[in-house]
């Protein structure tokens, strides 16, 4: 469960948000410039909020009062970037296994090949990102983020670079993946249809006003 209430600034633009997300898909919807990506960056630790707190499964990730600001690598939050951000010099397989934690005996570590085939990219394992299609890149990015066994997955416009038919197929897949993984997803989109189909709950952000509204159950 994610609990967060923070104020973030990017340039002269500031945004305040309160989040309360259980094992559901929360969709953050709004036009570009509304601060959607800024929120994801704050949650993942890539950007430091000005004030407030972020708590994930009882673990405090950020708190300006207590002076806590965990770096991204200690947050255990998966991030699927808007342009996928696949490592171009690594194969699909090498990309996917990049975040698998080694040597931790207690946790059941994932079998990379099983993961690849569950995302339908096992036949592409030895290709480079420059050699695969947009939908395949998206699956690779999803598999890579989930291979690290995150406690929360952030998705920044996961469908916006895809063709219409792949788009609806992937929407369905995302729903399925979410059911399988049983972790909260926060998905950012400017597409109302994506939001309607994917979101268990939805939060709208507007450009002018800093959104401050509780979502979820």
């Amino acid at each position: 469960m994610l609990k967060a209430d923070f104020l973030a600034k990017r340039g002269d633009f500031s945004i305040e948000i309160q989040l309360h997300v259980n094992r559901e898909i929360l969709v953050l919807c709004g036009p570009s410039g509304a601060g959607k990506t800024t929120i994801l960056q704050c949650l993942s630790g890539l950007l430091q909020p000005v004030s407030g707190f972020i708590e994930l499964n009882g673990r405090l990730l950020f708190s300006d009062i207590k002076g806590i600001n965990l770096p991204p690598r200690e947050r255990n939050i998966g991030y699927v970037f808007q342009d996928y951000a696949l490592f171009p010099h690594l194969t699909v397989r090498q990309n996917v296994v990049y975040g698998i934690k080694k040597g931790s005996g207690n946790s059941t570590s994932l079998d990379p090949m099983e993961l690849l085939s569950s995302f339908g990219i096992d036949l592409l394992a030895d290709r480079y990102p420059g050699q695969i299609s947009g939908g395949e890149k998206q699956r690779t990015a999803l598999a890579r983020a989930l291979a690290a066994q995150p406690e929360l997955l952030l998705l920044d416009e996961p469908l916006c670079a895809l063709d219409k038919d792949i788009r609806s197929a992937l929407r369905f897949e995302l729903k399925k993946i979410h059911r399988e993984w049983q972790i909260p997803f926060i998905l950012v989109t400017h597409d109302e249809e994506d939001a309607a189909v994917l979101g268990d709950s939805k939060m709208s952000l507007s450009r002018k006003r800093a959104a401050a509204m509780a979502a979820g159950s």
């Binding site: 890539l46 991204p72 690598r73 951000a85 990049y98």
Partner: peptide, 26 residues
């Protein structure tokens, strides 16, 4: 691309690993 370095960080890589597996090869 700095996003690639950020991606490595969110996947649990420390700064040294980011440098040697992403920045340096690219």
């Amino acid at each position: 691309d700095q996003t690639l370095e950020d991606a490595a960080r969110t996947l649990g890589a420390g700064e040294a690993r980011v440098f040697f597996t992403v920045t340096l090869p690219l």
